[in-house]
Design a protein around this nucleic acid. Structure first.
Lengths: 207, 207
DNA sequence: AACAAAGTAGTACACTTGTACTAATCAAAA
DNA sequence: TTTTGATTAGTACAAGTGTACTACTTTGTT
């Protein structure tokens, strides 16, 4: 990608993450990237093109999460979550402005919808494997693990928003907090054997 | 409250809920309420005053959730959640624009922060009661129920946002979906006796 | 009836925004 | 070297926004 173009999206990302998309005017971005507004417009015909490009950058990075095939399947299950949220953090503007973006970009909306479906399928597949390995218990309610996924989905999409509501700023600590909350949310579904693994992984103090 | 003022906030709420705060200009609101912009400005010096007033309306309604002291304590536990989310729905603009509101209104941010703390305390008290009654199991991880609350908090705050990401519009069905997801999220913490109650309440098909 | 206060309408202004447009500069190929 | 196309800067404009301001109308009190 062009050097200038690179500079633009790089600085856009910073501005977006800091104060939200709506607070970053084209003039702000141009100034930050140390180029003229005319130049900015030359590279991005429409303002929203920047957002789209950043979104698909995010998607790319998510696609490249390798399952990290450890022999410990529970560990890689948890790892995928951690890696995802780490990428989310880098593009947090997207999640902080989720609704307004979705309302404006049908393309992004549709794409993310599809992406979520895939992620859900992968999740459920992984759960099946974990059940087969005797680490997770079987479903006791109808659609129980779908419901588990739904919860994790909401929490991951809006974790940073949730943090920002209560604290002044957002830091990388939010990533670890997320991992803790998610792993704890999964704990009750573990079998005896699964809990042994869990304990080993987190050195969690089981009461 | 004044009749005109009432009309303003009523129509503001509709517009806000439909397309988000940022898409509702003062002229839009005035037009919708069938008054002049001048008149609108007479009643609300600053645009943000409307938002604040609506927010405190929401808070008022939340305060008035009576515990509905059924003899069934599990039922009233679930009921509080349902009633909350029903009120949330009426003021959904607030949750759909959560971050931008928070960024703009320190007053609201601080207030909601406090409110959340109270809600958390109430939640944990209720859990203690449920444990005492033998319906919930004891904590097995450190801060386990705090983590449960955190999850419920995020999900309730961003449930409607989450729905809107995937579907075209928002309907009251979202309320029931929420109740299902939340009750399922609590199920694994129930004791044997608790699960009997649960089954009775929801006629849930336990596999 | 008179009058003060509250309520209402309409206009105007200053500011910001996205973006269209033109001219200047640069890079590279012929 | 010339020339062509890509890149950059700067200016201008139209639209929309919040809000200040003035004048008119209604209401209620004395």
């Amino acid at each position: 990608m062009n050097n200038t173009k690179q500079k633009i999206i790089q600085h856009s990302l910073v501005l977006f993450n800091e104060n939200g998309i709506s607070k970053a005017s084209l003039r702000d971005i141009a100034k930050q990237a140390d180029i003229s507004v005319g130049n900015l417009q030359y590279h991005f015909k429409k303002r929203e093109d920047i957002v789209e490009l950043l979104y698909f950058e995010l998607v790319d990075k998510l696609d490249n999460i390798t399952a990290l095939k450890t022999d410990d399947i529970l560990k890689s299950f948890i790892n995928i979550g951690s890696e995802s949220i780490t990428i989310f953090y880098d593009y947090r503007f997207f999640f902080l402005d989720f609704i307004s973006i979705i309302r404006q970009h049908d393309k992004i909306k549709n794409h993310y919808s599809e992406l979520s479906k895939h992620r859900k399928d992968s999740f459920l597949e992984m759960i099946d494997m974990l059940i087969d390995h005797g680490l997770f218990r079987k479903e006791e309610l109808k659609g129980e693990y779908q419901s588990v996924y739904k919860r994790i989905e909401v929490i991951s999409n809006f974790w940073f928003s949730s943090i920002l509501i209560q604290s002044k700023t957002l830091s990388k600590k939010a990533i670890d907090d997320y991992s803790l909350v998610i792993s704890q949310s999964v704990y009750p579904y573990l079998t005896e054997e699964g809990r042994v693994h869990y304990k080993r992984m987190f050195n969690e103090q089981v009461l």
